[in-house]
Design a protein around this nucleic acid. Sequence first.
RNA 1: GGAGAAGUGGCAGAGUGGUCGAAUGCGGCAGUCUUGAAAACUGUUGAGGGUCACACCUCCGGGGGUUCGAAUCCCUCAUUCUCCGCCA
Length: 423
Amino acid sequence: MLQVPFIKENKDKVISRLAVRNIDATEMVESVIALDEKRKAIQTELDNTLAESNKLSKEIGMLFKSGKGAEANALKDQTAVLKEKSKTLSDDLNATTEELNSTLYKIPNVPHDSVPEGKSDEDNLETFREGDIPKLHDAAKPHWELAKDYNIIDFELGTKITGAGFPVYIDKGARLQRALIAYFLDKNTAAGYTEYQLPHLINEASGFGTGQLPDKEGQMYHVTGDNLYLIPTAEVPGTNIFRDTLVNEADLPISITGYTPCFRREAGSYGAHVRGLNRLHQFDKVEIIRVEHPDNSFKALEGMVEHIQGILKELELPYRILRLCGGDLTFTSVLTIDFEVYSAAQEKWLEVSSVSNFETYQANRLKLRFKNKDGKNEFAHTLNGSSLALPRILASILENYQTPEGIKVPKALIPYTGFDIIN
RNA sequence: GGAGAAGUGGCAGAGUGGUCGAAUGCGGCAGUCUUGAAAACUGUUGAGGGUCACACCUCCGGGGGUUCGAAUCCCUCAUUCUCCGCCA
């Protein structure tokens, strides 16, 4: 969430930049400022009441010590009134703080100056494009047909076992998945990211830490028996490593990577865009996460973008880079860069990675800080990105690399798969 | 799943009703010494709210209670450790 002093000092800017997200935050911003003023007033009154009460208690203690029991008992009566008053005030304070926080939770992060205006993904700004779109043979097919022809992914079987959106990968399909995971992790660790294996279920506190809760619980699978949630992305367990921590400035940046399955309810999705691997309830993803010094976070974002570019180039997939417009920007992000890969048989671009800088928005909720040169605790910046998400990479490999003889394996992956063609 | 124990500042670790926001050590920061560094020595060093700055308030796993007063007593929840059971 945003910090109240920041909102106060940059009120007009906050409102005007949030307008890029097509929301009018005027009312929420005003309300935050008013509630904070109210909170301060109550806090001050409560503090004074408690100070008085503390003072009396000390006096009572001293009187008892010096054997003046009668005087002490007389003072006790006075404390009763103060106690009643402080009870009322603290209830009032709690209610106000809660109201303040719930308003803060509703205000998304303030988009970076470079974020273009726009309503939907159609308004995202393409900034770069590389790689040749392959010319496929006449009998070329979309990946869901290829998957069936070569028996490497069985969607119906997954439907039988679980439901739609839970595919079963078979034989070379499964090996290709495993190869991609290992390949991505190797690329990430070679770039300085430390590999982590993370829990696939998270508790409520973690959901709050990264912003999935309180508003977006409908997007996660909820294990009600234990009140845990299945992770929608490794970002959640990975970033919550740093919840309630004070890191050393010298340890920044912290870079971690991890492979996890991701579970998303995707309620309300339907139609052609969910066909095959395009949108699933369970999918695999390798994530990169960074905790950065505020001075360096945008440079770090650039570095992450270059890193992912390197992987897509090595896989020889045609890709483009987009700067998300305000309307498409995720709630917690200041700036998000998307990567899309061209899927030749579907003849469309598929999103395979999303890289974001959250600045202090997550750190504020997480209480992730470092001690700066002046000895003050300062919120760190957090960033993350997919490096990479598997299903659409797989889809584009299957489609782009298909030949009449079979599906070729990208050169970079052959050491990992142990085979060079699916036929 | 059963029995017992524990949780304190960045870390380790004392503290069993008032003088405790909390001894001590490590780490951090500043200084002395040194050509410089290390060592040694001296000083300083928790977080949040509040204030121009003070004052003041809150925080000893989370929540609740007893008391004029709680790190300390009681209840409760989650966690960790030890022993037993079960087990990939």
